[in-house]
């Protein structure tokens, strides 16, 4: 037997979070958290408000610095890297509220997210060549915005803004995609279209989704992690989690 049963690094996890802790003035928002995400896995994180879901994403993408623990992405330690380095390593993150550039057009929003010319000089010399235009157009079609390329992003509807931000991540082609409540505030039809969109974009990458909408979670999740007070309360398939009495008590029950 393996001498260290607690370090399952023999398998190729895309993301390995181990002993992750962050405390804000003594309050542990995330407390000794460990979980592992497989290649091509869709992991949904659920949990009551204040469970630390968004904080976990903040920690992975470098927005918040961990107090303790490690986050390894394809065997690279993320906790010591800067935000832009983490992005360049292949981690994309969508924020809870649509975070897009309102003063720019849809085309320009996508173009800025295109992973080329990211240094100062590179950006100055960046040419909008046919490869860029082609890629932007492809992405725009995927996110249902092909007819809006020249429109200023501020005039898009809320749902379209959410799609645009998803498109801005897609164009970077990240290996790990993190989505924070991608269907929040969407109409029923937008929600259905988004589920369809997510199902097409999750191919060939790992995805972490935070979501409250249980119907939606059931549709997409391979595995569900339930967080409560910064700790893992339960983990496994949707059916297993839903049957867990602890989960029913703190979250699903009401």
């Amino acid at each position: 037997m393996n001498a260290q049963p607690n370090t399952p690094m023999t398998r190729d996890f895309v993301l390995a979070v181990e002993g992750l802790t962050v405390s804000f003035d003594g309050f542990k928002a995330v407390d000794n958290l460990s979980f592992y995400v497989d290649e091509n896995e869709i992991r949904v994180i659920i949990g009551p408000n204040g469970a630390g879901k968004t904080t976990v994403l903040d920690l992975i993408c470098g927005r918040t610095k961990a107090t303790d623990g490690s986050i390894r992405f394809k065997d690279r330690e993320l906790t010591t890297m800067k935000e832009h380095e983490i992005v360049r390593a292949g981690v994309g993150r969508k924020f809870q509220n649509p975070s897009i550039y309102e003063d720019l057009t849809v085309f320009e929003n996508l173009e800025i997210s295109y992973p080329k010319g990211r240094s100062v000089f590179g950006a100055l010399m960046f040419r909008r060549d046919s490869a860029v235009k082609e890629r932007v157009r492809n992405i725009a079609e995927t996110i249902f915005l092909a007819d809006h390329l020249d429109q200023r992003a501020e005039y898009l509807s809320h749902g379209q803004k959410q799609w645009l931000e998803i498109g801005m991540l897609l164009i970077q082609d990240p290996e790990l995609l993190m989505l924070d409540e991608p269907v929040a505030g969407m109409s029923v039809s937008e929600r259905r279209k988004t589920a369809e969109l997510l199902n097409t974009i999750i191919k060939d990458r790992s995805v972490i989704v935070i979501e409250h909408d249980m119907k939606f979670v059931e549709d997409i999740a391979h595995k569900v992690t339930v967080l409560h007070q910064g700790k893992v309360l339960s983990e496994g398939s949707m059916a297993k989690v839903q049957a867990d009495p602890k989960v029913i008590e703190v979250y699903l029950g009401h």
């Binding site: 993408c61 800067k82 935000e83 832009h84 992005v87 924020f95 975070s99 992973p115 990211r118 970077q172």
Partner: peptide, 10 residues
């Protein structure tokens, strides 16, 4: 933040 999380050193 969005620019930063698009891989740019702001």
């Amino acid at each position: 933040d969005r620019v930063r999380f698009s891989g740019y050193d702001v």
